[in-house]
Each structure stands twice: as C-alpha cells, then as structure tokens.
C-alpha cells in the first residue's frame, strides 16, 4: 500500500476581488466582485512508504493547500486521497496518530514555555506513557542537538534552534509520515544545513516517509530522492531528483587551470568559452554533454597544455526549476 495516494484532487477558494484606488474601492463597496481561485487542479500522485518526496513550486502554487488536505484540515472540492490508508478529511483523528507535521511559518511550540513542556504535552496527546515520552525526548534531543535548549523558554531561542525543536516535536510519536511545509523558511545557510541533516538522519533511521514542500531547491537536493514540481495547482514535472538533473542539467560548467599561460582566444571544439582569466592561466567553459561527450572535452583540454586543476559542475538546481516553470508557462 502506498503511503499517499492522490487522484484528481482539487480545491477551490472563493475570494473577494479587491480593486485598486479609493474610487474603485468605494464602488465595489456597493457591488463586490468575487472570483474563484483554483488552488489545486486535478492533482494525482503516489508516494511509497519511507520515500523522501519533494513538493516544489513557487508561492501560491498549491503546495500548502495540498498538504493541508492530506492532513485532513481542509476538505477538497473534488477528487480522492488516501494517506496511510485513511481518507484524511473523514478520519482525521485516526490519521493524526501516524503523521507528524511542521508548518514552517507557524510555530506550534508554546512561546512562553520551555520546549520540554510542549513535548511532554504532546506525549499526553499522542497517548504515550511517561517513560516512553522521556526516552523519546532524549533520543530526539540527541539527534537534533537540542539537549541544552529544552529547558529554555522558546521565545529566547533563535529561529534555527526553534525550528529544530519544532521538527523534533513533530517526530515525538514516531509517525510513519512526516509532512513538512517550508521547514527551512527564513533560516540562514548554516541553520538550514543543520536541520536538513537531522531530518535526513531521522528519516533513514526510522524509515519515516517525508513529504516536503519548499520553494528552496536546496532542501530538495539535500533531502529528496524524488520530486514533484507544481505550478498553478497542477503537476508540471515529476521524476527522480537525479533524473531531473540528468535530463535538465544537460549543460556542464568546466573550470580549468594550466601550468602555463594560454592564448586570449582559447577555444575547444564543441564548447563555449565563457571567460579567460586576466593572467591567462584559468579558463571557464560551458558545453552540452549530449552533443559533446565529457571525455572528448577532457581529452581536448589536457591536450591544450599541462593541467593543474579541473572542476566540472552542474548549474544550480534553481536554474533548472526556473526553466521548467518557464516551459510550463509557455505551454499555457
């Protein structure tokens, strides 16, 4: 049985249209206009138990709405979904025992109390006995490196420390599935790395499935094996992260350094020279690996002089995703 099974899920919201300017506002005071927003439009996908699945899309793409439907908070307007065998909006409480959630923008820890108080409360809510709760807290404290933070009132923690406590709290009852909505939002680079590592370790140790939404491609690269990219409430792409890289990251960047100076007009067949350094020892090139094989470029590069250093890299994932959105927009 898949952990998540979603078939043609859709959700529509109705909101008031707001006009700009004082005059227009006054007019619409008398005659408000409504418009419907299709936040999710016929979404279908599956997720295996223990899978690490990324849900990527720009703001307003429908990521959060989908997560909220899958946790049973929102009723869908159409379609079907099963999470761990439950229909979320009908069996919300049974489902709740088996899933953990973190909404990055909304704290669930009690602000004025130490995190340990919230964790103890959650122990009661999920009906763990006191010994179990204690042991579990110790385990999580170690994994998330929050041993020293548990007794401090949450308001005195930094955002990164708080998020680690938040994620730890969501794992207290050993859920089979973790739903993370923007867990790294607002964090600095170090804190992001910290939290990603902890999630990855815990997920592997306990075989927890992770469904993660983010608009940061870094989360995806660090945590997920598979990715679904959505835009305007629809799936625009789904595949393995590695496949995404392979099929979209076709161009490679090469930086080389030679022992001796090269010509200012340095060229290698089948590549494009981006830059020749001023002192003319280093060169930057780009090429499409599908047209010009990597080996051929390497051979040509080493034939051109004595190589001191060479790096071949993929362009950042952000660029790839931007290209996919672009393609999806153009199709519409």
């Amino acid at each position: 049985m898949p952990a998540i099974e979603v078939t043609s899920l859709s959700k529509t919201f109705r909101t008031k249209r707001k006009a700009a300017g004082l005059g227009a506002s006054l007019r619409s005071l008398v005659r408000p206009e409504f418009r419907t927003i299709e936040a999710v439009r016929g979404l279908s996908f599956e997720m295996e138990p223990g899978e690490l699945l990324g849900f990527i899309g720009p703001n307003g793409a429908g990521k959060s709405t989908t997560i909220k439907i899958l946790t049973g908070i929102l009723f869908p307007s159409g379609g079907e979904a099963k999470v761990l065998g439950y229909v979320p909006w009908k069996q919300r409480r049974q489902l709740a025992y088996h899933i953990g959630t973190v909404f990055g923008q909304r704290p669930q820890l009690w602000y004025h109390l130490p995190a340990i108080d919230t964790l103890t409360l959650f122990g009661k809510i999920y009906e763990l006995d006191d010994r179990q709760t204690k042991r579990r807290i110790a385990e999580l404290a170690e994994a998330f490196e929050i041993e020293d933070l548990l007794e401090t009132p949450v308001r005195k923690l930094s955002l990164g420390q708080r998020m680690r406590c938040e994620v730890a709290a969501s794992l207290l009852h050993k859920p089979k599935l973790l739903l993370l909505d923007e867990p790294s939002i607002g964090l600095d680079v170090v804190a992001k790395q910290h939290i990603r590592d902890a999630i990855r370790t815990m997920a592997a140790q306990e075989n927890v499935g992770v469904l993660l939404t983010s608009h940061d491609a870094g989360d995806l690269e660090a945590l997920c094996k598979r990715v679904i990219i959505i835009n305007h409430g629809q799936i625009v792409y789904q595949d393995k992260v590695s496949a995404l890289k392979r099929s979209f990251l076709t161009s490679k960047l090469v930086e080389v350094r030679y022992a001796q100076q090269v010509g200012a007009d340095f060229r290698i067949a089948g590549t494009e020279t981006l830059k020749v350094a001023k002192e003319r020892y280093g060169v930057k090139l780009r090429f499409d690996a599908r047209i010009t094989p990597v080996g051929k470029v390497m051979a040509a590069l080493s034939a051109a002089g004595t190589l001191v250093d060479i790096t071949i890299s993929d362009p950042p994932l952000e660029e790839v995703i931007a290209a996919i959105y672009q393609k999806a927009e153009n199709r519409e």
């Binding site: 008031k16 707001k18 300017g21 004082l22 506002s25 005071l29 408000p32």
Partner: peptide
C-alpha cells in the same frame, strides 16, 4: 488619512460589519 481610508475600503466588509 486618505491612504488610511483607502486601506479601510480594501477591507470594507470588516469596516461595515
């Protein structure tokens, strides 16, 4: 005040109720 009024009109349902 003019800006405030425009802002209040943005949320006119709130304003009226």
């Amino acid at each position: 005040w003019k800006t405030n009024l425009a802002a209040a009109m943005e949320y006119r349902a709130t304003f009226i109720t």
